[in-house]
Amino acid sequence: MITTRALTKVYDGKVAVEALTMEIRSGEIFGLLGPNGAGKTTTVRMLAALISPTSGEALIGGYRVGEQDAAIRRLVGIVTETPGLYERLSARENLEIYAKLYGVSNVTRQVEKYLRLLELWDRRDDPVGTFSKGMRQKLALARALVHEPKVLLLDEPTSGLDPQMTKVVRDFIAELKEQGRTILLCTHNLDEAERLCDRILVLKTRPIALDTPQALRRRLFGRRIIVTLEAVTDRILERVRALDFVLDVQQEDRRLVIALSDPERQNPILVRALVEVGAAIRFLTEEAHSLEEIYLRLIEEEERTSSLPSAPDRAEAPSAR
């Protein structure tokens, strides 16, 4: 649904986004992560046909950014970093303006549909200036959806919301995916990205990594299991090390942290070997790395690489599909 090839944007000689190549599949929630100033908003603006790329290309639903912008704008709904609503106008008036500008055929029905869906119908005639932050964010979502776009670009949709409202918005985004919409989600909330996104792209002007959170976890940390025993003896350690599929073993008090290549297949063999040498197993779990750890590791690696005098490997930025 969205394809970019070597997409680059330069403002006054300063590179905002460089060589971004990616493909977002139809019906997918795609997370765009990165520190402040990483180029996330610039990317969203290019994909919404608000600004044109300096070089490279972007296709949205087959339409090329910079050439078929009007068609792209009809296909895309956008929630910007700040809701950007007309404070003196009512919720209904705000939506009506956008429905008309998008050329919606039945303005009244569409406006009512989304005001009801986002539980704003009872406050439909109140000025938006009297709304809470959560209500404004819901109205901004309704505005992005009023013309039934196939693609949604969401820039920090839960920023500044309380946990309850965050959940409401997050559940709503998940519902939109169920409806088959393609969603690009820019967020600093890594828990949200983990819960919602099928794949993520970590961006820091250039793309750093693109994959599913699980694949990135595996790539960065491998797969490790933690076995908690009543006691760890030398015999137990020797037995574990003797297993040819064990990549690494570390002892942490009464816990063994064991790196495996294929835990689903190797765990039963490992457990059997431990029991044979008299180990009393209390727990066996897979070590879980949060998306935050993945993200921080990626950013640290990128900073380390970019601080080197020459970094030829940077030219090979990921462009996974």
Partner: peptide, 13 residues
């Protein structure tokens, strides 16, 4: 000031 221009410019106008 209200940052309403960006969503407005994202429409086909």
């Amino acid at each position: 000031q209200n940052r309403t221009l960006e969503p407005l410019l994202a429409t086909p106008i």
